[in-house]
Design a protein around this nucleic acid. Sequence first.
DNA 1: ACTAACGTTCAGCGTTCTCTCAGGTTTCCA
DNA 2: TGGAAACCTGAGAGAACGCTGAACGTTAGT
Lengths: 231, 231
Amino acid sequence: MEPIKVLVVDDEPNIRDLLASGLRFAGFSVLAVANGNDAVAAAEKGKPDLILLDVMLPDMSGFSVTKKLRSMDIMAPVLFLTARDEVEDKITGLTVGGDDYMTKPFSLDEIIARIHAILRRTKQASVEKSIIEVGEVSIDEDAHEVFVNGESVELSPTEYKLLRFLMENANRVLSKAQILDHVWEYDFNGEMGIVESYVSYLRKKLDPLTSEPVLLTKRGHGYMFKSTKKK
Amino acid sequence: MEPIKVLVVDDEPNIRDLLASGLRFAGFSVLAVANGNDAVAAAEKGKPDLILLDVMLPDMSGFSVTKKLRSMDIMAPVLFLTARDEVEDKITGLTVGGDDYMTKPFSLDEIIARIHAILRRTKQASVEKSIIEVGEVSIDEDAHEVFVNGESVELSPTEYKLLRFLMENANRVLSKAQILDHVWEYDFNGEMGIVESYVSYLRKKLDPLTSEPVLLTKRGHGYMFKSTKKK
DNA sequence: ACTAACGTTCAGCGTTCTCTCAGGTTTCCA
DNA sequence: TGGAAACCTGAGAGAACGCTGAACGTTAGT
């Protein structure tokens, strides 16, 4: 299987490196550049399957980059990155087709999930599944819906991300540090106690519906999602 | 099978030597350096499979080291080491993929276990198994779970580490000093009587489930985990 | 503008764990 | 065989750990 090629365009070296390393770990083939001109050149040459594009670039805006690409018949979907304060409505109008956008700061896992979602939408032949199912619990990644034994459960965005990360690593202990790094935004600067809080929230919602607790505490190590037998 | 290469980066000679010799004994090929610049150079030349990186280095922070490494396309996973009081949250967000971090003081076996866990998680094609099985007792290192003849046993963190160390060295006598060095944190300066206590705890939990005692006392020498016939 | 939902921190609480100690038991050897 | 050394184990103090409800500021939706 060919690796999926992603072009990363961001002028902040920290973010660019974070994205490049994270995506490489996730199995993508990554090319990273710092400005719009390089982006156009790299896209023409590298034929990426997807482009991660910061809206604010030193030489030209992310939108100009896309316009240029489209005029060159490079139709790879674009995932825009933008600071939270930047005018979001401008973006919504300009994302067409399979495009999407995210606000900084993001969590790496969220970016990866979004990339998969876009690719699923654009290439329907994709082998990727959009459903994670472990024991009695299942997640629909496209609809962001969670079911326990067929019954729907309402989760907040953070609850959802936490559950997804735990389920992706089911039956494996995850340290609070790991959870924090994968579920929370990259600039989160708070305490690990928040993980405890959210585990508590999830338990309150999930446990009444499962035959036995699914979120186990491994004292001194972290937490684990345990697959249970279906009812 | 090629030995796994680990790069150790710590400016405290004591810790560095402790790690280097401990990991060599555990079968790793080890390269140890004292600062960030040497680390970058060594990583470029040595192509380590994993990097053990102290966060506080004299010349640059562990953060800068990783950034530099990633930009050089050196994608080896990093296990960060940090003092317990040092601002732990500074690390948040810079661990990607399989990275993790641990606080000092650590125990040697804990480091080794964590290294194996990371390598297992990053290269899923690895042949490494996460299960240690000796006679009637088996340990799932991913889930931190212990089974005796299929029945689950609940152990505290220290009990778990002790059992793992004894089982890794099954049918071999281990002195209390050795046990102390491997299972307890390196700055522990209590009495050896604590080993006796914990062996006692383990016996109380394991013996009721085994056909014959598995933890033998070798008077004057130490303790030994003996593999028994399965029921 | 108002309201609900969400994210985050914090403190109080109960639980569990670590470690020590002391009294008892076993083993070994003079 | 007596006694010392090594070992076992129950009890308990104190600390660490984890859980949860409450409070507060911020964001999102109507």
